[in-house]
Nucleic acid binder design. Structure first.
Length: 195
DNA sequence: TGCCCGATTAACT
DNA sequence: GTTAATCGGGCAA
């Protein structure tokens, strides 16, 4: 039986939490699967929403770790983040893709697709499949509708540049499972492994 | 107050 | 490869 992730798990550097999330299981109302792609955003990072200081949108990032930060992207998609580090650090991990395992019929229905590979391979797609919306912003990750379980066994992790940003685009803070076919995009050939 | 642009996606040419 | 959809934040005026 996998171990549930506690708030302590998130009370560490985003650069430790992000790779540790690869292979972990995320369920929202029982629907979800194994995380295969995340990105780290640190408060000292110009690409982070928290970089410019607190605002109504990013307030949750400035709160304690172990909570969901959900924001609207491009006016039409939702993106899910996990707040990390001690309160006030305003750092978070963006959940970019997962391998669908639980609740496939619900995900297919919500996405209007049957291709498993496209159900959750991107932050906006994942939120649509798991029905994550602004209503989840600020909710604790250790209570319903969220369920998080630590990974079991070994996972080969690769790191590379983050996607869709222009500021600090060179920082290799995107983490993923090597070779997963559920990634939103493949990683560049250069690779480092871990865990 | 107005304008530009973004941690995106799907449907085009 | 390019572009529309769609809207809130941040900054200039």
């Amino acid at each position: 039986m996998p171990k549930r992730l506690t708030k302590g798990f998130f009370n560490r550097s985003v650069h430790e939490v992000a790779p540790d999330l690869i292979g972990a299981t995320l369920l929202v109302d029982g629907v979800g699967g194994r995380l295969v792609e995340v990105e780290a955003y640190h408060h000292t990072d110009p690409a982070a929403h928290s970089f410019g200081g607190p605002s109504a949108r990013n307030a949750v990032m400035f709160g304690p770790p172990g909570y969901a930060y959900v924001y609207r992207s491009y006016g039409l998609h939702w993106c899910l983040n996990f707040v990390c580090e001690p309160k006030g650090s305003a750092s978070a991990v963006l959940i970019r893709a997962l391998e669908p395992n639980e609740g496939l019929p619900a995900m297919r229905r919500r996405r209007g697709l049957t291709d498993e590979r496209l159900l959750c391979s991107g932050p906006g797609r994942l939120c649509e499949a798991l029905r994550v919306t602004g209503a989840h912003n600020g909710l604790p990750l250790n209570a319903p509708p969220f369920e998080l379980f630590a990974r079991q066994g070994e996972v080969e992790i690769v790191a590379g540049p983050r996607i869709g940003i222009t500021k600090a685009a060179d920082r290799p803070w995107r983490y993923g499972e090597r070779g997963s076919r559920f990634l939103s995009k493949p990683f560049p050939a250069a690779a480092k492994s871990g865990a």
